Amino acid sequence: METEATTIDRKEFFRLVGVSFGAIVLQQCLSGCNTGASPDPNPTTPTDFSVNVNNGTFTALRNAGGFVRTNGVIIARTQQGGFIAVSQACTHEGTAVNYIVSNNTFLCPNHGSVFSSEGEVQTGPATKPLTRYKTSYDPSTGDIRIYP
């Protein structure tokens, strides 16, 4: 069985390459204009839960500077021994923030946004604050309650 080779001339070749290249560029331009809603990194759903510092998952909270992330919230123990809790997702692009005990702030490792212990933006690119939650601690049981 013989197969015939198909050839195209130079003009046709460049026309096909141009159309293909144009389609790729157009696809990239259109994907950059996506208006689809992205998940809100700062949900407004009320949060009310408890963690226990005696539970192996939360033992980092026994020490000043320790922090944990759970239920979309970062809970940190300050140098003074108190607890603070804010939403864990940076409001810029949703990256999980870290607690910096030396200056009592939250830092986004992705683009460097800094938030105060109250969740307020100190350094961008984030422009919206983190949600701040109230905390209460019962030292007799080791329970920390996080609530709106």
Rank of each mutant, 00 (worst) to 15 (best):
V53I: 15
A85K: 02
N103D: 14
R62D: 04
R77Q: 11
P109C: 10
A85Y: 02
Q122N: 15
G112T: 05
T59Q: 09
G66S: 07
T105M: 07
R62S: 08
G81I: 14
G72N: 08
L107D: 04
V86D: 04
P109M: 09
V68R: 01
Y99N: 04
N52P: 06
V97I: 15
S102R: 08
C90F: 07
P109R: 07
T123V: 15
V97K: 11
Q122F: 11
T57L: 10
S113R: 07
F106G: 05
V86S: 05
P46H: 02
N54Y: 02
A85G: 03
A126C: 15
T70G: 07
T70F: 01
F115V: 06
P125M: 14
Q80G: 10
T59F: 00
R62E: 08
R69N: 10
F49V: 04
F67R: 02
F67D: 03
C90Y: 07
S113V: 13
N71Q: 15
G81T: 12
L107C: 00
E93R: 13
V68K: 03
V97S: 12
A89G: 05
T78D: 06
H92P: 04
P46Y: 01
R69V: 11
G119C: 13
L107R: 00
F106Q: 08
V51W: 02
A96L: 08
N63A: 13
A76I: 09
F83Y: 15
R77T: 09
T95L: 10
G66C: 05
E93A: 14
V86Y: 03
Q122T: 15
N103H: 10
N71G: 08
G81E: 12
P109T: 11
G66N: 09
A85F: 03
F106E: 07
L107S: 04
F106P: 03
V86Q: 05
N98Q: 07
N63R: 09
G72E: 04
C108D: 10
P43N: 10
V68Q: 02
E120V: 12
T91N: 09
V101F: 01
P109V: 10
G72L: 07
F115S: 08
V97T: 14
N42E: 11
A96S: 11
T95K: 14
T123P: 01
L107W: 00
G124H: 13
G81M: 13
T59Y: 00
G65S: 08
N52E: 07
V51E: 02
T44C: 00
N54S: 10
N42S: 14
H92N: 07
F67T: 02
T59S: 08
Q88P: 01
S87A: 06
V97N: 12
P109E: 08
N63D: 14
E118W: 00
N103G: 07
V114Q: 04
H111E: 10
E93Y: 03
A96I: 09
P109S: 11
P125K: 15
T44S: 02
V68N: 03
N103E: 12
P125W: 13
T105W: 00
L61T: 04
